[in-house]
Amino acid sequence: MKLLLVALLTALCLLRIPSVVKVAEARASWVASVFGLAALYVLGTVTPLATIDSYLGGINVANLLQAIFALLAIFFFNDSVRRLANVAVRWTYYAPLLSIPIMIASFALVKDKAPTSADFIDYRMDQLAIAVYSGSYMLALLFTVLRIIYMLRHKARGLYATFSAGLLVVAAAVSCHLTYVLLFHFSPWHTFAEAIGSWFDRLFYAGLSVTAAGWLILFLSKQIPKLRLWMIDALWLTGLRIRVHADHSRVSPAWDLFNETLENGVYKSLIVLHNYQRGNLTAFPESVQGRINQIEAKLDAQV
């Protein structure tokens, strides 16, 4: 399940690079996927955990880093949902990030942090510092995930519904872990607590995978038609601008292709070519003008 999540997040990270360059509002969700990948990496999904942790002193700092990266991933994802749902930022918005210094401080207080182990938390659950460390991490996650689900309540249609579905499973996973921490540390029912806690891993990664898969399908289903509609036109117009020297700078046509969305790039190229014709009192050959007119008609039809 973790490897599936790595594959999904890697695809999202790579495929969305052009969007991130061109559209400022797309950046927070991209940062979320990068932090998600970083969290999975330090968890030992790609490189063995022992190797990563040995570079960090061999005292399970990788575990702390994984928690911080995962929290940041969810936080930035939450920021994108906030933009999608057009929700204002209130004082509670940054509250989950307050758990990071608490996690660092409580991690520092954990006794006998070595050796490196994937079950670092479980083996030391008798320590209050571990309960605070793990509990504050899970509380922050739960708060953020529930807030995302709440913000999505009017938007959860179509593929966005997979976001809510996946995150509900994540919320269930986090609730299991919180229950485990509380029961194990503050009650005598350790076996029962462990049985509940054992659900965390499978639910957490299954929920995140559902969300990431929904996101990837959403991205592909929206972007592929746009690529098919504008890519050839954008390249042709950029080529024409370069060929006739329609710009003051030779770099401008390529920069517009790189820096603007395809539709805006097409629009900009059309304007630059009109300016060129007006400014030089010249006209393109009929075949070229015919194609420009066709592209313009297509652009008009989009409005």
Binding site: A26, A28, S29, L84, N86, K222, N264, K268, Q302, V303
Partner: peptide
């Protein structure tokens, strides 16, 4: 300014933030 305004005008029929695309 004209480019920016054209973006806002052309987006009129289907303006919705798309932070996940």
């Amino acid at each position: 300014f004209a480019f920016e305004m054209s973006k806002k005008t052309r987006a009129r029929s289907s303006f919705e933030p798309e932070p996940f695309l």
